[in-house]
Design a binder for these strands. Sequence first.
DNA 1: GTATGGGTTCACGTCAGCGTGAAGGTCAAG
DNA 2: CTTGACCTTCACGCTGACGTGAACCCATAC
Lengths: 117, 117
Amino acid sequence: MLISELAELTGVSARALRHYEDRGLLVPARDSSGYRDYSESDVTRVARIRAMISAGLGTAAIQRYLDCARTGDHGVSLEMCPDLRAELDSLAGRLNARQAELRETQQRLSELISVRG
Amino acid sequence: MLISELAELTGVSARALRHYEDRGLLVPARDSSGYRDYSESDVTRVARIRAMISAGLGTAAIQRYLDCARTGDHGVSLEMCPDLRAELDSLAGRLNARQAELRETQQRLSELISVRG
DNA sequence: GTATGGGTTCACGTCAGCGTGAAGGTCAAG
DNA sequence: CTTGACCTTCACGCTGACGTGAACCCATAC
């Protein structure tokens, strides 16, 4: 199918799909005139990519682990690959750190507001 | 005093101090040879700048409101300027939104980890 | 004189996932 | 033939507080 069709089906912009190709996440076939030709299975592949992005994974990490992912009854899950567990734990740690920073920022902001001059 | 001295006193890099000057937040005098010549009061001014940055304010907003700030017994506080209240409330709203997004991300990540394949 | 250890002003790099034209080829329809 | 709606490949813009050389001036000690 054409890129606009896959974009429609997945709700992901055509630009984003091209971006995924640049990152090596989703490399479709090409027809005789150079148009990208996506398969049906690419719909679920895009879903996996989106799930991992929304979980905070970068495209580089996604490329390393995308083939560990599968779509099950309860949404997207990941078959364990070596190092994947560590990578995810690391990411969770960074998210927690960011969360703590954000709370600090909110705290300082509220002080700035409430203390008054 | 020289830029390196102020940097040492405040713990802010010389590059950052020059950046603040570019943004119009801290514009020191110059000596006969063109060197930046900071005053003692610039130490507290840098503290105010850092406090506002760490509260999530951008340099543009800081420039508009820096002179509303003062250093009191309980840290940095802000004298109210017109529009400042609204600006801070707006910022607080964005921080809350970011916080919510982050929690969503953490949620999706934990699902990715716990569901298993 | 010169080897240092400052200082100065540009100005691009960083981090990242796309948005957004720009310039031009492809193809079904009027 | 000519729209017009797609497609293609660049390649800069965005968000923003700095990091990091590059190339050059200033001052002090040797």
